[in-house]
């Protein structure tokens, strides 16, 4: 008998694409997509149920449809999408609590996959260079998406304690980037002038959108419990990434950063939440040994390739590379000529 998978957050681009691909998987009999708003994209063979995970209707869906696998992919990163920070928190935290309560009551449930984020590690100057899955953050995220993700993971751990028969897999994805995805870091690099914190250069580790989908697929089919960092190999320095995007840097002294960030946020240009500012100041790296050795996942994009793929799609690139090269060559020829004469 095939498996019945329930996917939350299918109206978001990533959740929808994931559910559609999953429905084509021969091992999967049915995919049920759940979200509060109807999806704009075509979901293919996915059966869509319009339900709010914040109310008990979800229990009926899980038990009534005989769901054996739940993929919780609806944790929202940007407050703008949810219609404000409080609505976002409501959806993320209360929604997860309701969903997990329903999961606990479902006797047929065998597996729970949760999409989380490496933002649960926070970002501070006291961080180790690379976080492994069992390291605790040096500074617990105090607000925003990161705090939601920490709380969600807490509730998920609670469920895995109470239902030891359910395989619980948590995937912590690094900051997402990709050609079609609207991510906060993508919007940041698309700004005409990229503000950074003066005197700091963050290490960025990115995860390509295709690797997000592939890792979720693998987590559904593989049977490995635990938390896994999912990220591309290697890091880019923030200044290096901005140069590659060919954008002018605007370093802002750290005391003015929150004011400028607020300005950008209210103008809806980019999402400069405090935890994103911390990330763009101190950076973060995660160790992916467990992803390779235990989960058996091999990302198709390194951080650099993922970023380049994003740049290609957005039509960004280093500032006139041919011009720079020809200036370099011209200067060299000139100086050599002068030096030989003198």
């Amino acid at each position: 008998m095939g498996r019945v998978v329930l996917v939350t957050g299918v109206s978001q681009p990533l959740g929808g694409r994931f559910a559609r691909t999953l429905a084509n998987n021969p091992d999967v009999e049915r995919v049920i997509g759940v979200d509060v708003v109807p999806p704009r994209a075509d979901l293919g063979a996915v059966r869509f149920v319009r339900a709010d995970i914040r109310n008990p209707v979800i229990t009926k869906v899980i038990v009534g449809e005989d769901v054996d696998t739940v993929v919780h992919a609806s944790v929202i990163a940007a407050p703008a999408r949810a219609g404000g920070r409080s609505a976002m928190k409501e959806l993320n935290v209360i929604g997860t609590m309701q969903l997990l309560a329903a999961c606990q009551k479902a006797p047929g449930l065998r597996k729970l996959v949760v999409r989380s984020t490496t933002e649960v590690y926070g970002a501070s100057p006291r961080d180790p260079a690379m976080f492994t899955e069992d390291m605790a953050p040096k500074q617990l995220p105090r607000a925003g998406f990161a705090k939601d993700a920490v709380e969600v993971e807490g509730y998920v751990r609670g469920l895995s304690r109470r239902r030891p028969d359910v395989t619980v897999t948590i995937l912590r994805h690094a900051n997402l980037i990709g050609p079609t995805l609207e991510s906060s870091i993508g919007r940041y690099f698309s700004l005409p002038v990229v503000p950074t914190t003066l005197g700091y250069d963050a290490r960025l580790q990115l995860c390509h959108e295709r690797d997000v989908l592939d890792s979720l697929q693998l987590a559904v089919s593989a049977d490995v419990p635990g938390a896994f960092n999912i990220a591309g190999d290697g890091v880019l320095m923030l200044s290096q990434a901005v140069r590659r995007a060919g954008r002018p840097l605007a370093p802002i002294p750290s005391f003015a950063v929150s004011a400028v960030g607020g300005l950008f946020r209210s103008a809806r240009l980019a999402d400069f939440s405090p935890e994103q500012v911390a990330f763009l100041t101190y950076g973060r790296g995660v160790d992916t040994t467990r992803m390779r050795k235990v989960l058996g996942f091999e990302p198709s994009f390194t951080t650099e390739q993922a970023f380049d793929d994003f740049l290609r799609a957005k039509g960004l690139g280093p500032l006139a590379p041919e011009r720079v090269q020809s200036v370099e060559r011209g200067l060299r020829d000139l100086l050599v000529r002068e030096g030989d004469r003198g």
């Binding site: 290490r203 290697g234 890091v235 140069r243 590659r244 950076g283 720079v324």
Partner: peptide
Amino acid sequence: RRRLTGDYTVDEFG
């Protein structure tokens, strides 16, 4: 030129 175009690599520690 490589500095200007960001064409270099750093290791995981930066």
